[in-house]
Design a protein around this nucleic acid. Structure first.
Lengths: 339, 339
DNA sequence: TTGTATGCGTTATCAC
DNA sequence: GTGATAACGCATACAA
């Protein structure tokens, strides 16, 4: 790094104001008492020098950083982007800063683990983990040393605290919706829990509920949205299928795109459901039928919980499952009679 | 805060390994030489104690934090969310961390200013500002003390460095596209530059170019997407209008939604253009005609530039305008003959 | 190769 | 109300 002038310290300010550094410290931190006259002189000196408190040095002695570390998988995903915003806002309310870390774009477990270590190095006071990828075992060692909350994914490990939206409930509700419309043959795009602890359980719940209600289920493995073309091919090979359930809104969008390409009418020939209800895909323009997660609530509650943990209080529950809601759009309808 | 056990320090590790703290310091920082045997003993002790380097204390003496402060207006917006991801990734490449700050959801200038001060307190080594709201004058005092780059918005103040996508070019290109299709009466949803330094100039450029090419322009003030209903009412009052240009993809989506509600065919009766080409709205599913900003490039280049500044190098240019591209979708077509 | 001593900017605890 | 001084955890120059 190029040499650059060091920022002024309280000592510089003290010299300029003709007082001791203790006085400056009291003035800028607002603790202790100082004469009104000297206070103004110090403030003037500070302003003239462009003094800004050094949070690093302050943290050094205070043993506090007033910082919560948030790990999000990818801020570019609407789900995590919204979560991040909700948390940042709520943390500010509690007087905490948020520092965010992400894996460096590779999305593997090692990478994400490193990101958590970075947060620990920065001496964040608590951790909020938002990633459907990282398994509980990798979170445990951090949770042992730092108040930790897992947000936005079902996490039932007994020694981890979590806030999420019940995936079983959502998957089942969407399945019920289709059954109620009269669908008897439904395809589900499934994701293994090993690649996503959110989409895995929710698609499993969809399939399970459908079967419970006597519906024939065609399971199609679809971890990646890029393979939507193949899903459609598979679905069309089974003419009895009248509806397709996607693991997320973005998966549903990819699906709709492919169906549009092949001239399959939605919901005329095929009904489609999504999951999340967040961001631009949730707009009435598309009218996607989906399960909406209360993301602002999840983010806010996660921060509240982590703050309670910091204050030594017991959170209301170890695992808080927040209620979502069904959004009925225009991509689902009763199946056509001839199918 | 509840009392909690303090994390182990190099001194704890040193005691356990039976060496001095300097040795531990050398081992964990990788600088200086230590005997292989002692090195392993130290590493063992560190692992047993769960030691993690304290970046705060390290920054204290090193006068470096290896941290770049990024201010983004709102991570929930796809544009900023993508920008954030691109920057984080590129910063990691250069060996820097990113700490993000946002206003606490209020979106006023004072709030954003406070967020920048927070970053300064944290002693970030450089600043990247991404907000269409904050005026140059509020950035200047920070830029004077810290290497600063403004990203994602046109910023031509001589003492600020910036990376952005040329708004004039994009607005003009979209206008040309419509003119080329034969439109002679076009509505432009305009935004004042005072409320957005990106959407302001770009909509102005649209209107200007249209007029230059002899098109009649209907300007409709539309800062907020929520008022899309009123835009449509206004447009429909002018039957000659055959196309509407929106200040962003999200504005265009709101517009399309309203048009759909009123049964206006797109592009049959009315052509619509957007701006950004980022995120879910850019998908072929919607097929929005828009100008695409090279957001990954902007984010990456912003970080590169800030790192060059940190290294004392001169950046390639004070203001780097990156080229965007026209995305031709299905929301624009030649105007119907009867209009 | 290893240990000792010093200082980074701040707050807290004392004296004054 | 004000000032001197001791930490905080680490890196580093220097001595051993």
């Amino acid at each position: 790094m190029a040499d650059r002038p060091r920022s002024p310290t309280i000592i510089d300010v003290a010299r300029r104001a003709g007082v001791s550094k203790s006085v400056v410290s009291r003035v800028v931190s607002g603790r202790g008492s100082v004469g009104e006259e000297t206070r103004l002189r110090v403030l003037d000196a500070a302003r003239e020098l462009g003094y800004v408190v050094n949070a690093v040095a302050r943290a050094m002695v205070a043993h506090r950083t007033y910082t919560v570390g948030v790990f999000v998988r990818d801020a570019a995903t609407p789900f995590y982007g919204h979560l991040l915003t909700a948390m940042q806002e709520r943390a500010a309310f509690h007087g905490y800063r948020v520092v965010t870390a992400t894996g460096s774009g590779r999305f593997d477990v090692e990478d994400e683990h490193r990101a958590l270590e970075t947060l620990a190095m920065l001496r964040v006071e608590a951790l909020i983990v938002c990633s459907g990828l990282l398994p509980s075992e990798r979170i445990l060692p951090f949770a042992a040393r730092l108040p930790t909350v897992v947000a936005g994914r079902p996490e039932t490990h007994p020694s981890i605290t979590s806030v999420y939206c019940d995936e079983e409930e959502g998957g089942a509700a969407l399945a019920d919706h289709l059954v109620g419309l009269g669908h008897r043959d439904v395809a589900v795009i499934t994701v293994p829990t090993s690649s996503s602890v959110t989409m895995g359980p929710r698609t499993a719940a969809m399939a399970r509920r459908l079967r419970e209600r006597g519906v024939r289920v065609l399971e199609i493995a679809g971890p990646h949205r890029e393979t939507a073309g193949a899903w459609v091919t598979e679905v069309l090979r089974h003419p009895a299928v009248t509806a397709v359930m996607a693991p997320s809104d973005r998966h549903a969008a990819a699906l709709l795109e492919q169906l549009q390409l092949r001239g399959v009418a939605v919901p005329g020939q095929l009904s489609v459901t999504g999951y999340d209800g967040i961001g631009d895909l949730a707009s009435p323009l598309i009218g996607l039928t989906c399960w909406r997660q209360p993301i602002d609530l999840v983010g806010g509650r996660a921060v509240d919980t982590v703050v309670q943990l910091l204050d030594g209080e017991q959170p209301p529950a170890h695992h808080q499952a927040l209620p979502g809601s069904l959004v009925t759009g225009r991509t689902t309808a009763a199946p056509a009679r001839d199918s």
